[in-house]
Design a protein around this nucleic acid. Structure first.
Lengths: 340, 340
DNA sequence: CTGAAAGCGCTTACAG
DNA sequence: CTGAAAGCGCTTACAG
């Protein structure tokens, strides 16, 4: 099905003028036919539509957007869709965006080889960007260009808008809970963090350790090789073998906690009877396993709501592009399920 | 931080002419400064950038795209990001798209209230659309407009390009496997399907039942209330209680199989010792639980590769917009892990 | 180093 | 019912 020869558009694509010529009408009439506008005879409309079809005509979104404004496009930057955290957040953002009639461009910096390019393209296609920048925030903000940005869970000081996650209160509640249920020898199953020195506890890990120590515990600290289920399982297996008295595993996140759960099962260690397991994040995933996972949950709907709110304000100029006025905090809270 | 008063752009947004006026230069000079082009003095560049900053100038992606073509934008339509199947597919598509320098607009019809609108907006913003249309394919193709479409796992006959999933061979392999390991009383844990009558087995379910019967089994068929983990767990619990001899649960998908796994654990039924559990899809999720999930896996990277391939061909005119030339088939294959 | 001209593809008034 | 004109915001030659 080769295309007719002479087309004016770039890339050999037909433009409205090609259709007009083929149908023997003006471009305005093509617009009327293609956009279902009134003021055109049935016969003409049919002739135009036939010509459009034959030329495989598709209106340029740029031409259209230029004149009619076009829908807002929200850029969403996630770290790795294969990690269940990202899609849950994306789902929340998508829902809010769709409710406003915005479209969402998605870029994944954990997935693509050339993440710099992805970030740059995202900035070019978006009216506003929401997402995780992590340790490379300064560099990537540069690449995003001049769009307003709402950073989620920023690793450092907030350079633009920001929604911060704060687990500190929930960590205290969790520590109290562990005391109450009689835990004696807790273990913090930590993940490496780019923000601290190698071998050091992550910010979350430190929070957990401090809360436990304040209650008289002498918590063990295990630094897994990565924030993955496999690494969580390996770390747990080793720790259970080396320290028989461990009776609670507090993981850096839910995915690692799932690994801990699997390791316990393989070691024939009952959860929560002999060892309690706790994650952080509150992923739906934690409700699909048995025992269901106790976790410090963050309400991603709330995170998304704040982020979109801030983005909106920055976009319409009612909020500045950085500073305290574009900062929000969302606190984790303890979700006691079966595993602890 | 209120904006300066008189701005020519729509929505009060500054245009290149506003910046030019503020900096006392021509629009070409603004382009040079903003796009880091050569042929501009340092002093002028700084003055222009300052003016741009002060006016909160952001170049219109429409204006830019119109003249320089702009990156291709791929529309991806998923059903529900909260279902782990969607993000795994999205991850594969995103990776391929990014490698080509395309951006991806994502719409989720299972999530948004006004899915019709989402579909329509997606069509308007995309050069090509890949995705699940399900039972509403005819209607939604209409809404997508004239963009090329590659439908994934179409429910009916392919109306445009299509990547079909074919579990039939893997189902036979699975049935043989069950015979080999000594399963006697298998149960098909099915999900409701819009394509068949209420209470009827889904296409997948029928495939499983047929393969089992051909091997002399008298398989039970349980239709869960939904294709969810909870429904899978409920269906499994009820079946285990009613039919003590059931020694294998073949679920409609992995998520339901996870529910079956949880139900077995709660009932104190060992997997795979007493009951074997099998899912369909091959989600990563199945490797995070213990026992790991045996499943009929479909390679989503392969699905994505075919889909992007077809999309590309339809876009550049080397492939027609529908018909056998734009159909691909991806087969499931049995992935034996711990649960069966 | 800087600016005047042309044009990307479309839609929105307006005139016939 | 149909078409000539103007303009959306930008960049790419080209001229000075």
């Amino acid at each position: 099905m080769a295309r007719p020869a002479r087309l004016s558009g770039a890339g050999g694509r037909a433009t409205i003028l090609d259709v007009a010529a083929a149908a023997g009408v003006s471009r305005q009439t093509v617009t009327r036919a293609v956009n279902d506008l009134p003021g055109i005879s049935v016969a003409t409309r049919q002739r135009v539509l036939a010509a459009a079809e034959a030329l495989d005509y598709r209106p340029s979104r740029f031409g259209r957007g230029l004149v009619s404004g076009g829908a807002h496009q929200l850029g969403l930057l996630v770290d790795d869709l294969r990690n269940p955290y990202s899609p849950e957040l994306a789902a929340s953002v998508l829902r809010l965006a769709a409710a406003r009639g915005w479209t969402v461009v998605l870029a994944d910096v954990g997935l693509t080889g050339d993440s710099d390019r992805s970030v740059q393209d995202l900035g070019a296609q978006s009216d506003v960007v929401i997402g995780y920048l992590g340790a490379r925030a300064p560099e990537w903000l540069e690449r995003l260009g001049s769009v307003p940005v709402v950073e989620l869970d920023p690793a450092g000081p907030a350079l633009r808008g920001a929604v911060r996650l704060d687990p500190s209160e929930a960590v205290e509640t969790l520590a109290d809970h562990l005391v109450t249920v009689g835990v004696k020898h807790p273990l913090v199953l930590d993940a490496p963090s780019a923000a601290v020195g190698a071998g050091q506890p992550s910010a979350r890990g430190q929070l957990l350790l401090d809360a436990l120590r304040r209650r008289g515990y002498l918590p063990r600290h295990v630094l897994a090789g990565a924030a993955s289920a496999d690494a969580g399982a390996a770390g747990t297996s080793a720790a259970l073998a080396a320290h028989r008295r461990v009776d609670a595993v507090l993981a850096f996140n839910d995915v690692m906690a799932l690994g801990a759960l699997a390791a316990c099962r393989r070691a024939g260690v009952d959860v929560p009877e002999r060892v309690r397991v706790v994650g952080i994040d509150g992923l739906t995933l934690g409700t699909l396993v048995a025992p269901t996972l106790t976790t410090l949950a963050v309400d991603l709907d709330e995170v998304a709501r704040h982020a979109v709110d801030l983005a909106l304000g920055m976009l319409d100029g009612s909020l500045p592009r950085s500073g305290d006025a574009v900062q929000r905090v969302v606190r984790h809270r303890l979700l006691v399920r079966e595993s602890a």
